[in-house]
Design a protein around this nucleic acid. Structure first.
Length: 329
DNA sequence: AACCTTATCT
DNA sequence: AAGATAAGGT
């Protein structure tokens, strides 16, 4: 009796026991009861099917003898599986057949477990687990599901990390970088995020990590360019335009566009080398790259007009990229 | 959970 | 410097 409460896992856990042998049926029912299960029983397959189908009993698990006189060996099992209503029920078979054929037969027909009679208390008190597996009952609220989730996360993380062989590093050739630049221009510099860029570039084998890393360098170079421009402006004591609202942490679109423009078409936007001259791996983000001034750029440089610093949807950037485009494609 | 950005490492 | 990877954030 003491066992009853100890092993009880949820308020109502109802087991349907099916056995034509009345002694066996009584014994199993008693044991289930001792373990805290609610028990309903049937002594033949037909009755059992009825009980389980009308849904009134709300059975959570079926524990049945394999051999029922009113049905073929696996017939009851098959019928439970066939029926949509009982398909999800966990089914545990018991029988005197202590051999692999019988066990496998049950499993193939859809049972979760085959137990050899006589059953033990230890076994019976564990039966509720099958209902959890099948989703028939949910774990009691005093068991914190997060505990399990956490463990699960760790496991998947580990298995993800294991099969990782080192990849050869990607070299951003001038050509690849050109595609990158065009993509950014097409998407819009403010909306150009790694995934978008990757999809748009459509270069086989290119991974999002490659893009992310490159994008970081790219942005860094823009910032550097902007800083030098700023210094220059300070020296020339040119009127600073008030910073636009909301340009706090990450540079705003207009900010970036301004950088592109003011950098006089620096290395990124500046003259790409012809394909045949390209040196592998010698991409320059820095300011040490020589570049011709283009007519458009020098014109713009002398304008110094406020509107150029506004959110002017990147007319300048467009021009920059177009110039670039004309020369190389 | 996917994706982004920033930091750190080689 | 140029890229990869880790770490941190939404």
């Amino acid at each position: 009796m003491e066992l009853t409460k100890k092993w009880k896992v949820c308020e109502v856990f109802r087991v349907l026991v099916v056995d034509h042998d009345s002694t066996s049926l009584k014994t199993v029912c008693k044991m289930l009861d001792l373990c805290g299960y609610e028990v309903v029983s049937a002594n033949c397959g037909i009755d059992a099917l009825e009980m389980v189908r009308d849904g009134e009993n709300d059975v959570h698990l079926v524990l049945t003898e394999l051999h029922l006189p009113d049905m073929g060996t696996y017939e009851f099992l098959e019928k439970l599986i066939m029926d949509q209503k009982t398909l999800k029920l966990p089914i545990v078979i018991m029988s005197g057949d202590d051999n692999e054929i019988a066990k496998l037969g049950c499993l193939f027909k859809g049972a979760m477990l085959h137990l050899v009679k006589p059953l033990t208390m230890k076994t019976i008190r564990n039966l509720w687990q099958f209902a959890i597996i099948k989703g028939i009952i949910t774990p009691p609220p005093n068991i914190n599901p997060l505990l399990f989730q956490h463990k699960h996360k760790k496991i998947t993380k580990i298995t993800k990390q294991l099969p990782r062989h080192s990849r050869p590093k990607l070299i951003w050739t001038q050509q690849l970088h050109n595609i990158f630049l065009h993509t950014i221009q097409a998407i819009g510099i403010d909306k150009a995020h790694p995934k978008e860029i990757l999809q748009h570039m459509n270069v086989p084998g290119l991974r999002i990590q490659n893009i992310s890393s490159h994008l970081q360098k790219f942005r860094l170079s823009l910032k550097r360019g902007q800083n030098t421009i700023d210094k220059k402006k300070d020296e020339e004591s040119i009127i600073e335009f008030p910073k636009q609202q909301g340009a706090t942490n990450s540079p705003s679109p207009s900010h970036l566009e301004r950088q592109c423009h003011n950098r006089q078409f620096g290395p990124f936007i500046g003259q790409p080398k012809p394909l045949e001259d390209q040196e592998e791996g010698s991409l320059n983000f820095g300011s040490n790259v020589k570049h011709k001034k283009m007519t458009t750029s020098s014109q713009m440089e002398h304008q110094h007009q406020p509107y150029m610093f506004e959110v002017d949807k990147g007319g300048e950037v467009d021009a920059i990229f177009h110039t670039f485009h004309d020369q190389h494609y």
